[in-house]
Structure formats: structure tokens, C-alpha cells
Amino acid sequence: MVKQHFPGRAVRFALAVTTMLLAAALLYAGESQVDDETCLACHDGYDATVKNTAHRLGSSMTSPATDVSCSSCHTGAAEHADDPSADNIINPENQTGQEAFNTCTTCHIAHVELDNYGSDPHNDMQLNCAGCHRIHDDNARLLIDNENKFCFQCHSDVEARFHLQSQHPVLADNLTCLSCHRFSKRQDNNASYDFQRVCQDCHPEQAGPYLYEHGATSAYSVQGGGCVECHDPHGSANDRLLKQSGNNLCEGCHFVPRHKTAHGSLWKDYACQSCHSDLHGSFTNGMLLDENLPAKLGLDCYQSGCHSTN
């Protein structure tokens, strides 16, 4: 009998789970309490405010891709139709943050994933989804306003950082806040080196994984770590978005006195990066040294047996 390896079992397990979930999904059918026509008889024109969006009413389409109706979000429509009053129908915009979150995540489950794995301060502050999204509008992603300017209304200190010496080109319109701050599909971010995926999408040359990692690039869920350990992604007074300039940055974690005194203080005024050039990670040595260092220095520090590369 051939022993079954782990990946084979994992695939079979995944297939079984897939089948069960899909079966459950297909069996589920949401029912609207009141047809849209009834709602629009009084609330004339509201269908036009969602016609360009994913909330377009299924009843207004000849081949609806999704079955969204007024009562999908505004629960209590049956009672409201019999006795029209603002008090007997749910308007998510007027709900508490948690109540609105529960309503919206009935469909927008990606935000629940975020809630499960990450910590979103917007959730902590119980901000209503409608604080950033206006449903009866056709802006991109239904955001209330142009993305960056909108975020800056609350995060004005971040806007200031985009004016510093080096900065990500957000004010130049090459990026938006949402290019990096992904409020959904973020479930992989806690997974080992994949934490840096947001940065690596644009900076693959530093992505790794390397055989010899720089420890600072590891993500610590307790207190930071990763790219942002050395770089301030919004803006910095130093080149390359670095939190400190030159050797100051390295010496925040590493201080090796012998570097200042060895060989008659020969290397005292050198930048750490002159030798440790592979500072994001190396495929050849644990000290993250330049592969061509012996040729660069005109002497071989390793052949002599004085130094090791690991």
C-alpha cells in the first residue's frame, strides 16, 4: 500500500470542503420581502441612483447578474409598505456602526474577513460603512469623494507627510490611499513573508524570499516589523522614505564597536551599506554583504580566515 502524502490529502480535503460550501451556497436563496416596484412607487428615482453600481436593482435589468432589491438592505419593507413611516424600516445609514456592518457584510463578506484577521480602527470606532461609502451614488467604489482627498479629511497628519522630502507619489496621482490600504482581500497579510505583499507588488526587486533574510523584514504582529520598520511609507525627510538617514538607521538596531576601530579605524567613515549592500536579504551570505566585496575593497577579508560571511 502506497503511503498517502500530506499534499494529496490536503487537496482531497479542500475539494470536499469546496463541494460542501458550493452546495450550501447554491441551496441558499435570499428572498426579498417586497418587490422594488412597490418601493419605487413612493421613492421615485432611487433606482437611478444605483443603476451604475453593483447595487443595481435586479428588477431593472433584463438579465440580472445579481439579485439586489431595495429590501436587501432596507429590511422591514413589508411592514413599511403597509404603514409608511421612517420608524419601521431599516436605513443602514442611520444604524450604529455594528448594525450597519452586519447589514452590509451579508453580501460584502470580504470585510468580515478583515474583521477576523486584522484590526481595523474604523471598526473599533464603530464607524458606519456609510461614513465612507454613499450607496445611492455612482462614484468609484461608492466612496463619497475623490479617494485621497476624502481620506485626508480625517487623516490630515498623513497628508502632511506626503509633502516631505521623499514620498510615495500620491499627490501626483500615480497612487491612491487604497493602492496600499486594502480593506478587503487582506487575509494573507499575516502569513509569514507574505505580509509584505502590498509593498512587493511594486517593489519586486526587494521582495525575496531570500535564503538569508534581514531579520527586520519579518513581520511581527505584536509590534510592527517588515518594510515599515525602516521605511515610512507616506513620506520622510530622508531619502528613500527611510526613517533615519545613513548609518543612523542601521545603528538604531546594530552597533558593532569594532567597525569603528578595526584596522586603524579605516572603515570609520564608511556607510554600513557600502559593504552590507544586500540589506533586504541575500542569496549568498548571512551578513548581507556585497557579493563582490573582495574585489571592491581590493583585499579578501575571508580567504585570510579573519572574517566569515555567515
Binding site: 458550493l22 567613515d269 551599506q273 549592500s277
Partner: peptide
């Protein structure tokens, strides 16, 4: 790399391609 009197120069010339495909089932 101030404050030390040293300058480091790097050259880049790379191409990075990425392909992905997947499926999602939800209820």
C-alpha cells in the same frame, strides 16, 4: 549616505511578471 562621507550607486534593469488565477465560492 550622509552623515558619513560615502556614496553608493546601484543600477537596476529588471523585468518582473506575475500571473494569477483562482476561484472563490461563497455563501
Amino acid at each position: 549616505l550622509r552623515p558619513v562621507a560615502d556614496t553608493v550607486e546601484f543600477s537596476s534593469d529588471y523585468t518582473h511578471t506575475s500571473f494569477h488565477a483562482g476561484a472563490k465560492g461563497f455563501c
